[in-house]
């Protein structure tokens, strides 16, 4: 690789905490790498763990999921479900040999613009270390 690998990271953020935290990072002009692209969902509990598999298959080199800190969920409990489900997915991915650095999860509150930057930097650093995930890409069907 002559040029540095620029990983493609898909992030799922809950509307109330991390999405607002990412907005705050913007308002505060906190600079971070441009590799992370955000899909807004209402709650981290909305994130079907199979989205992670799908994103990796469809071209993502890494996936990031972020929601409210435990106890702070706008919907009271959604992040607790997310935590349990995504832990299982993480175990499964690791067991099947997917580089664990391709999957990150964080709690970032609406006031943690700085933490959001750190989380993004970590996700990008991790995905660079893991490299492009071409082995798993959805193949085009041609005949």
């Amino acid at each position: 690789m002559s040029e540095q690998f620029k990983p493609n990271i898909v992030a799922f953020l809950c509307n109330w905490c991390t999405y607002a935290g990412a907005d705050l990072a913007g308002t505060s002009r906190i600079q971070y790498p441009a590799n992370v692209k955000i899909i807004r969902v209402m709650c981290s509990g909305r994130v079907n763990p199979l989205y992670v598999v799908n994103a990796l298959q469809q071209g993502a080199d890494g996936v990031l999921i972020s929601g409210c800190h435990p106890g702070d969920c706008h919907y009271m409990e959604g992040n607790y479900y997310a935590r349990r489900r995504l832990k299982l997915l993480k175990e499964l991915l690791e067991f099947t040999g997917v580089d664990p650095r391709r999957f990150n999860m964080s709690w970032v509150s609406a006031s943690e613009g700085h933490k959001w930057k750190e989380v993004v930097e970590k996700a990008v650093e991790d995905a660079i270390a893991a490299g492009p995930f071409d082995q798993f890409r959805r193949r085009q069907i041609g005949w």
Partner: peptide, 25 residues
């Protein structure tokens, strides 16, 4: 479409991950 019908490694893997995950717990 969660998993394409094509039988290839990528779709097979997605299928098996989904199957195993759905049975977790």
């Amino acid at each position: 479409i969660w998993v394409n019908r094509a039988v290839n490694f990528s779709e097979n893997t997605a299928f098996h991950l989904a199957r195993a995950f759905h049975l977790a717990g």
